[in-house]
Design a protein around this nucleic acid. Structure first.
Lengths: 237, 237
DNA sequence: AATTCGTGTAATCGGTGCTTACATTCACAA
DNA sequence: TTGTGAATGTAAGCACCGATTACACGAATT
């Protein structure tokens, strides 16, 4: 197994089912026995992810924190992976919300500036929520193409960057016409930096934790500059 | 645990220790009982990594493939992580060898071309050996700064790119003077693309498996072009 | 009030990392 | 040649894990 020493599997018998806080004014959703075990399990798992990364999540520990027997979670999730999937969806939701919020503050007249803003927001969230970002990224826990509600969110984010980039091109802000290459390269840049941060590579490359955020902005700017002025329509010799 | 159903733990009793192929002409290293169990375990683990990724490696399965009892590996590796570490060192060794081999073929008069060559070789190896690359990348399995023999290899590779980039700058091939930013950005680019490939993101971004290698070269070229001609000494308006 | 079905419990299975006690076998020295 | 010690492997067992099954409870429907 992966988690070497944890608390005992046994909790005090708790006198059967005496003080289980049922949801008072029933929200007409799933207030059967526990209240909303599914939700509580996801929250517990999210917390575990935040504490020790994806590998620190075990169904049993989530059940333990929810005050429920080890088998109970399997009524709501057919497997551990399904639980992780739900956690990833939650993380993806928060991520998408923050990206769109950041973009809402960006000026609408400067597509390339908005593109830059997307990269900055992406990196800021990834560096502030490394473990959650890791879950979203690795397809081990999250089959982006399968989960209904959030895959559209994700696809929309991809479409958002595509549209923004296309606008920048139309506005003559781009020095190259191969938008797909720019799209992929930009994504690889921010994804790579985020993962370097998560995977602890930055110190080896001479970037301290304190410098990381500034460096993130710098490389985005460097990339933007690289794709912007290179063969600008009027500045060519 | 992670691996749901495997072969039975029991192998046929095998009549004690009858036909264990000791290494014939003893290589004066560690030919005690098994021959070179440490080596065999690493090979088995490497194979497991290649088959199902890092999570598919279990000490027991490695022992099984080595034809040895489940506890035997712990005579050579104090923990599973230590085994993974050895595997990662092996992978890092192969990786470094390929990179240096590729660089040996590059023209020595064109530093920026050599820098590009480094990126291409990096991506080619990563895409051809995704699981091994993953092990090298994630510090979960490989503490780069701790392992003696190979960390120098790794540090040397970092130094290699730094030197190459510095040469390119000295030769006037660079349009920016902040080499550290270029260094980090370049690393993030290739690392990010490699991980996108590994993590299965490329299809979602409209890049098929067949196009991946070409795209890898394209984005490296795009990056090189971006850092090269931007504020070239004589071409400024 | 009786039944049904969703939910949680208890017990259990096989897998895992890891430890301990014991057995074997090589290497070196008296 | 013969001990003897250290290196190496085996056997057994612990705690933990994911997952399944049979059973118990309880709210909702009839």
């Amino acid at each position: 197994m992966r988690r070497p020493a944890k608390t005992s599997d046994k909790s005090p018998p708790a006198g059967r089912r005496s003080a289980k806080p049922r949801p008072a004014r029933a929200p007409a959703a799933k207030p059967y026995h526990h209240g909303d075990l599914r939700r509580v399990l996801i929250d517990a798992a999210m917390q575990l992810v935040g504490e020790g990364g994806p590998d620190a999540v075990s169904v049993r520990e989530a059940a333990r924190r929810a005050g429920v027997s080890p088998g109970a979670p399997f009524r709501h999730f057919p497997s551990r992976d399904a639980l992780m999937n739900a956690v990833a969806e939650e993380a993806q939701r928060r991520f998408g919300a923050e990206i769109e919020a950041a973009l809402a503050d960006a000026p609408s007249g400067d597509p390339l500036g908005r593109f830059r803003c997307l990269g900055i927001a992406y990196l800021r969230w990834a560096m502030k929520n490394p473990t959650h970002f890791e879950i979203i990224s690795s397809r081990r826990f999250f089959d982006h193409d399968r989960s209904a509600g959030v895959s559209s969110d994700n696809a929309e984010l991809i479409g958002l960057t595509e549209r923004t980039l296309a606008e920048a091109f139309s506005a003559g802000q781009l020095g190259t016409s191969d938008l797909k290459q720019v799209q992929i390269a930009g994504r690889a840049l921010v994804y790579g930096f985020a993962r370097m941060h998560i995977d602890g590579h930055l110190p080896r490359w001479g970037v301290t934790e304190a410098e990381a955020e500034q460096m993130a902005a710098d490389i985005v700017d460097l990339f933007i500059a690289g794709i912007a002025g290179r063969v600008a329509p009027a500045a060519k010799a």
